[in-house]
Design a binder for these strands. Structure first.
Length: 788
DNA sequence: AGCACGCCGACT
DNA sequence: GTCGGCGTGCTC
C-alpha cells in the first residue's frame, strides 16, 4: 500500500501539520511528491499538497481516507521546493501552507466557494430566482428559512467547489478543413483562406484582425464550411509591445575579468561558494552578472537574478532581455496574477532559463540552478515584513546548497554583516574599484543647516544649494533632490496650546496632505479632513510643521520658477506611474526631480549633474541600531546618481549632524572607514554581526494582556537561554500603538543557542493555545531588518 | 478555517 | 416542547 503525507490548504495554525492519506491503487503510478490533490477532510473536500510518499504510516490505518483526485498532471512543486517550504516554515516559525502559498503563484491558491444544487424543478427555480443564483451569499433571513426546508427535504444540497483564480488564457483561432473551395467571386475571402491554409497551426483571430481581415470575413468562410474554429492556449506577454535591441557582450577590464574567472570556476566546479562582489557605482557589476549567467546557461543550467524592486530598475531588466532574449522571465509586482502565472509556467516548463525579479523570485521553479545573483544585497526589501518573515539571501543559501551552485551578492555598500563575513572568509570577497567609464570624480559637499539657520536662512534650501540649482537651470542640466518625507507637512501644531494631531489608532502624528485636504496616518492609512481650529483648545492659530515633498514641490516651483517632477508613494501608487514620471523627467528635460528614497535607486540619466539631499538626518534618528548604516548607504547611493557620464557631477548633503560619522564617511565616499567605525559600535553595543537577533512583538488592544504576554516571553527566554545571550526588554515598541494595538517588544541577542528553534516553537504554540482567544498576538521575527 | 456536536434561552 | 444561539474540539 502506498501512502501520502499531505499539507492541507487551510491557512490556520490548528491544521498546520502533516496529514496522511492512502493513495488509491489506480493512482499509484502517476502520483508524485509536489502534486496538488483534493482530499476528504472532515465533512468536506479540500485542496492539499503531497510532501512525501511512503510505505508506512503513523496514523491509525483504520481511520485513513483515500486521496480523492490529482489536480495537475505534473506536480506544481519540485522535491527541492517541497523540502525548502518545510525548512522555511520551521526556521521562521510559520504555517506550512503560508510558505507554500508564497512559493507558488497566487493563481494556484485554492478558492473555496459554496454553491447550491437543486434536485427538482421547484428547487432549481427557487435557487435561480435569487440574485446571486447558486452562490451561497447575501442570503436574507427569510431566504435562509426557506432554504432550510429545502435542505431538510433533501431537495437542495450544498456543495463546495474549488475554483482556480487563473486558468491558462485562451483565444479563438481558426484553421482550414478543406482543400478545394469555390471562392472565385470573393477575392478577399480567397486571399484570407490561403493565408489560413498556409499556416501550420491554427491562426489566432486577433492576428487576422491585425492584418486587416474583418471578423465578418472570417465568419463568411466559417459559414461556408471551409474553416473550423477552435480555442488555443496563449501566453500573456507583458513585453509584447516592446522591442529589444540585441545587447552584445562587452569586453571586461582586468578587475572584472579576474572576478568573473573566480565565479566561473565555482559554477564549473559546482561549488556552493558565496561571493561578495563589492563594486563602486559604475564599476560594471552588471556586465559581470551577465557573463556569469552566460556561463551557467552554456553549462545547460539556469540562473536567478534578484533585484530590490524591479519596477525601480527597468533599465536592468531591459538589458537582460536584450542579452538573453526569450530565455528571460521577468517577475515583478506590476504584473497581473495571470501574467505572473504565465511567467512562472515559462520557468517551470523550461522555456525560460533566467528569471529576474524581486524577493519572491528566489522561489523560481528551476531544477538545475547554475548561479544565484542578488544585486544590492544590502537592501531591506529582501526581508519580508509579513509572514513568513524570510530573507531572500538566507533562502538563497539553502537553494545554492541543494543545487550545488554559487551565489553572488553584489553591492556598492555591502551590509555590515556581509562584509564581516567576507573578512572572516565565510564569503569570498571580490572587488571592483575602477569606474568602467572614465569620469571626473564626484564633488561632494556638506552644508550645516544649523549654521544656515543662525545666519538667518530658515528655508529648507541652503544658500549653497540654491546657487548650484540656479546654475544648473541656466545650463539646462538636471537636478535630483531627495527628501525622505512625503505629504505636505509632518504634523499639525497648535501654537496656543501645543496640541499635535495624532492618529486615534497609532499614537503617531498625522501628516497633512494639502491636495487631499486631509490629515493622514502613514502607518495605518487613517484619514480625517483637516480642521482650521485646534481640537484641544478651539484656537485658530494652528500651523503645519515639518516639510514634506508635497510642500517642497511648491517651494521649488515658486523659488526657481521651473518644472518639478515629484516622485513619492502618493504620486507613484498607480500602476505604471513610476516609469511614466521618469520618462517625463528625461524626455522633457525637466529641471528638478524631487522624491523620497525611491529615487535613489537605479536612476541613470546623463544630464543629471547635481544631487541634493535636503535632510540627510531623517533616517539617522530612527530608533534602530542600523540607522547609521541606512543613512550611509542611502547617501552613497544617491550620490552615485550625479555625473554618471561625461558631465561632472556635484552632490550636496544638508544636515544638522555635520560631524556624524555616517555623513562624514559618505562625504568622503569611504566605505571601509565607515565599516570599521560601525563595527566598533556594533561590538560595544553588542549587535549584529557580533550577535544574532530575534525580535518578539507582543500586541493586543488591551494593554494588560500585552504586559502579561510580554512577561511570559521574557520569563521563558530567561529560563531557556544560556547566559551568553542578552534579553532586552520588554519595552514599548517605538510606535507604541499601531492599528489600535498596543505593542511591546523584546529583543533577544544571542551567539549560540542550540535549542532556540524549539523554544520559539513552544512560545508560538503557547500564544496560539492560550492567548489567541483574547486577541493577544506574538510576532516572532528571526534576524529582523528593523527593530521597531 | 469550517463543520459537527452539544448544551441553554424565547418562540411557532 | 423545538429552534437556533455560539462555545469546544477535531479534521488523516
Amino acid at each position: 500500500m502506498m501512502y501520502a503525507a499531505i499539507i492541507v490548504d487551510i491557512p490556520n495554525k490548528a491544521v498546520s501539520k502533516i496529514f496522511e492519506y492512502e493513495v488509491p491503487e489506480s493512482m499509484v503510478s502517476f502520483t508524485k511528491v509536489g502534486h496538488r490533490v483534493l482530499v476528504p477532510f472532515g465533512s468536506r473536500t479540500i485542496q492539499g499538497f503531497i510532501v512525501e510518499l511512503k510505505e508506512t504510516v503513523d496514523y491509525d490505518t483504520t481511520k485513513l481516507k483515500p486521496i480523492a483526485k490529482l489536480l495537475d498532471i505534473e506536480p506544481v512543486l519540485k522535491p527541492e521546493l517541497v523540502e525548502l517550504s518545510i525548512h522555511i516554515a520551521d526556521y521562521y516559525v510559520d504555517n506550512y501552507i503560508n510558505v507554500i502559498e508564497t512559493i507558488l503563484p497566487a493563481a494556484l491558491k485554492s478558492n473555496y466557494k459554496k454553491v447550491l444544487v437543486g434536485h427538482d424543478d421547484a428547487a432549481i427555480d427557487w435557487i435561480n430566482a435569487r440574485p446571486k443564483g447558486p452562490e451561497v451569499k447575501y442570503l436574507t433571513k427569510e431566504e435562509l428559512k426557506e432554504l432550510r426546508v429545502f435542505i431538510k427535504e433533501e431537495r437542495i444540497t450544498e456543495e463546495t467547489i474549488i475554483k482556480q483564480h487563473t486558468a491558462p488564457k485562451k483565444a479563438l483561432a481558426v484553421y482550414a478543413i478543406v482543400d478545394d473551395m469555390n471562392l472565385e467571386n470573393a477575392p478577399k475571402q480567397l486571399e484570407l483562406f490561403y493565408e489560413i491554409q498556409a499556416a501550420s497551426e491554427p491562426t489566432l483571430m486577433r492576428n487576422l484582425t491585425e492584418r486587416g481581415y474583418s471578423n465578418h470575413l472570417v465568419n463568411e468562410l466559417y459559414k461556408k464550411g471551409y474553416i473550423e474554429k477552435t480555442e488555443v492556449e496563449i501566453e500573456r506577454d507583458p513585453f509584447k509591445n516592446k522591442v529589444f535591441e540585441a545587447d552584445k557582450k562587452k569586453a571586461l577590464n582586468a578587475e572584472q575579468q579576474e572576478n568573473f574567472n573566480q565565479i566561473k570556476q565555482s559554477i564549473d566546479a559546482r561549488q556552493d561558494d558565496i561571493f561578495l562582489l563589492h563594486g563602486i557605482t559604475g564599476s560594471g557589476k552588471t556586465e559581470v552578472y551577465l557573463q556569469a549567467i552566460d556561463v551557467a546557461l552554456q553549462n545547460g543550467q539556469e540562473a536567478i537574478l534578484l533585484v530590490p524592486e524591479i519596477s525601480l530598475t527597468p533599465q536592468m531588466a531591459n538589458r537582460f532581455k536584450s542579452r538573453f532574449g526569450d530565455d528571460v522571465a521577468v517577475l515583478h509586482s506590476g504584473l497581473s496574477p495571470g501574467e505572473k502565472y504565465d511567467e512562472w509556467r515559462k520557468i517551470k516548463e523550461g522555456r525560460a532559463r533566467v528569471s529576474i525579479g524581486a524577493r519572491s523570485n528566489i522561489f523560481a521553479p528551476f531544477e538545475n540552478l547554475g548561479i544565484i545573483i542578488i544585486d544590492e544585497e544590502h537592501e531591506t526589501t529582501y526581508k519580508q515584513n509579513e509572514r513568513p518573515h524570510y530573507h531572500a539571501v538566507e533562502v538563497a543559501k539553502v537553494r545554492a546548497k541543494y543545487n550545488r551552485c554559487p551565489i553572488v551578492l553584489g553591492s556598492a555598500t555591502p551590509s555590515i554583516e556581509s562584509y564581516a563575513r567576507a573578512e572572516k572568509g565565510v564569503y569570498k570577497l571580490l572587488e571592483l574599484t575602477k569606474r568602467a567609464v572614465n569620469q571626473t570624480p564626484i564633488d561632494i559637499s556638506v552644508v550645516d543647516m544649523a549654521e544656515e539657520h543662525k545666519r538667518g536662512n530658515i528655508s529648507i534650501i541652503s544658500d549653497t544649494l540654491q546657487d548650484k540649482i540656479i546654475e544648473r537651470i541656466e545650463k539646462e542640466e538636471q537636478i535630483v533632490l531627495l527628501l525622505n518625507r512625503r505629504g505636505y507637512a509632518n504634523f499639525q501644531l497648535c501654537q496656543d496650546c501645543g496640541h499635535v494631531s495624532t492618529c486615534p489608532h497609532c499614537d503617531i502624528s498625522l501628516t497633512y496632505h494639502k491636495r487631499k485636504q486631509n490629515l493622514m496616518c502613514h502607518y495605518c492609512g487613517y484619514e480625517e479632513t483637516v480642521k482650521k481650529v485646534c481640537a484641544a483648545c478651539d484656537s485658530t492659530s494652528v500651523t503645519f510643521r515639518g516639510l514634506g515633498t508635497e510642500q517642497v514641490e511648491e517651494i521649488l516651483r515658486d523659488t526657481f520658477n521651473t518644472d518639478v517632477v515629484r516622485m513619492d508613494f502618493d504620486t507613484t501608487k498607480q500602476k505604471g506611474m513610476h516609469e511614466k514620471l521618469l520618462n517625463t523627467f528625461e524626455r522633457e528635460n525637466i529641471s528638478i526631480l524631487l522624491g523620497t528614497q525611491m529615487i535613489a535607486k537605479g536612476l541613470d540619466y546623463p544630464n543629471v549633474t547635481l544631487v541634493g539631499v535636503l535632510n540627510a538626518d531623517t533616517m539617522l534618528n530612527l530608533p534602530d541600531f542600523r540607522a547609521s548604516e541606512r543613512t550611509f548607504q542611502l547617501l552613497m547611493q544617491v550620490a552615485g546618481r550625479a555625473g554618471r557620464h561625461q558631465l561632472p557631477g556635484e552632490v550636496v548633503f544638508q544636515t544638522y549632524n555635520k560631524e556624524h560619522y555616517a555623513i562624514q564617511f559618505a562625504t568622503n565616499q569611504d566605505y571601509m572607514g565607515f565599516y570599521r567605525e560601525e563595527m566598533d559600535f556594533r561590538k560595544v553595543a553588542r549587535y549584529a554581526p557580533y550577535y544574532f537577533h530575534v525580535l518578539f512583538t507582543i500586541s493586543s488592544e488591551r494593554m494588560a494582556d500585552v504586559i502579561e504576554g510580554a512577561h511570559h516571553v521574557h520569563q521563558t527566554l530567561s529560563q531557556q537561554m544560556s547566559n551568553t545571550s542578552i534579553i532586552v526588554g520588554p519595552a514599548p515598541s517605538p510606535i507604541e500603538r499601531m492599528n489600535k494595538q498596543y505593542r511591546f517588544q523584546i529583543l533577544l541577542k544571542y551567539k549560540r543557542e542550540s535549542g532556540l528553534m524549539d523554544v520559539l516553537k513552544a512560545l508560538d504554540d503557547h500564544f496560539f493555545e492560550t492567548y489567541k482567544a483574547k486577541g493577544l498576538l506574538l510576532k516572532i521575527d528571526i534576524n529582523p531588518s528593523l527593530i521597531m
